[in-house]
Design a protein around this nucleic acid. Sequence first.
DNA 1: GAGCACAATATTGTATACAAAACGTGATGC
DNA 2: GCATCACGTTTTGTATACAATATTGTGCTC
Lengths: 234, 234
Amino acid sequence: MYGPRTIERTHNSKPPNGELVSADLSRAIHEHRLAPGTKLGEDELADIYGVSRTIIRTALQRLAHGQLVEIHRNRGAFVAKPTPKEALEIFEARELLEPRTAHSAALRATAEDITALNAHITKEHEAVASNDRGLALYLSGQLHVQIAKIAGQSTIADFVETLISRSSLIVALYWKRESALCESHAHHSLVSAIEANDATLAEELMVSHLVDLHSALDLRDVPEVATSLKDILG
Amino acid sequence: MYGPRTIERTHNSKPPNGELVSADLSRAIHEHRLAPGTKLGEDELADIYGVSRTIIRTALQRLAHGQLVEIHRNRGAFVAKPTPKEALEIFEARELLEPRTAHSAALRATAEDITALNAHITKEHEAVASNDRGLALYLSGQLHVQIAKIAGQSTIADFVETLISRSSLIVALYWKRESALCESHAHHSLVSAIEANDATLAEELMVSHLVDLHSALDLRDVPEVATSLKDILG
DNA sequence: GAGCACAATATTGTATACAAAACGTGATGC
DNA sequence: GCATCACGTTTTGTATACAATATTGTGCTC
């Protein structure tokens, strides 16, 4: 089992459009409520969100572009399942981009940025404390996104955002130790370095943090989590 | 004037789907047949391509995700018009990613890769010789994409691809000298370095090539190219 | 009973119909 | 003369209907 796989629409008064639906699905994937390989049927989603397939379709296409879902023609949409090779590439890309964003962020961070980062860390702690593994995972990724945005290079921040999203899938598939998110410490010292405007230290901490994450993956095994039998036996 | 703004569908037997339409539009933007700011009306495009608005819509959304077009809710889709700030960011991102791809490409290039690169260069020369500025521009960008793909990091290659696309818009808006594409030389020496597996040289050549391109832009002026009067006077 | 052909079903792809929002035009009032 | 408002037109947003393709189930043949 893999925990609840339900998607629930938040009870907003307004009918959701494609953007909202994709955001909601994206969040569900981040939080591991939707496992890699899960089929995302259009009619099913249309029922859940109370909209027509038109909306669902645009949402799925949006997610497909971010490579969070794979769309196979005439076969439907599935939560993406990065291969070990792709996983490796994604982490290599992160190791290329993120140290630089940490460096820039340390140089550019304003007082409000620092406040926001610390608030974020607090929320992370709360999520861990209340055993909400999904939320903790999501927030953990979002901290990296936030740092990239502070760096003030929105183009690269966008890239980092997609890498973080896909990393969530990778964690779902290849994470080694069940002990899991002991990374709060890393995040805390990273934010401290940014707060102190110590760019070099921030960069180094980011490198080692990413190496840590990377080394906590087991990319040698082919993952067969929650997939069709055909994939396993084929 | 800005050259012909027509979009023409290639006479293929099969009716085009969203992917084909977006590829066609993308190419038209690359080749500067569609200027930044041009409105892309759905009905108009549906007529041109002989499909329903459904297809056009998915194509436009796809392009919007790649930031080649901007979609304003209830107002329609327009060919994107990067600001000077965005243009700067895009070139900074290229300067971060592409030297590394050139380096890796030099190490990894196979005989077939080299053949393809040289064939590409030949096509570039032909385009320049036949005064097909649009095609020359397109091919010029594609060489960078090809190098990124040879580097074998598909994630980063995707990033480079979007950066190249957007660079085409930037050239349309901010290119300084009309003399233009004297870069054939740069491409030729770059490919030679890759062919010789000289990674360090390839990286250096890429850096200087990008600096060259970058310095050929005039990012201080706010561009008002081919826009509606309202934009200018608003 | 195994394998295959074919029909029934379900799901996606595309086109169209309808609703809502923005735009343009022209009349009206100051 | 200018601004403003109201109406009609145009264009986009959403839902639904229909077509095409894949999947599943059934029965036939060997």
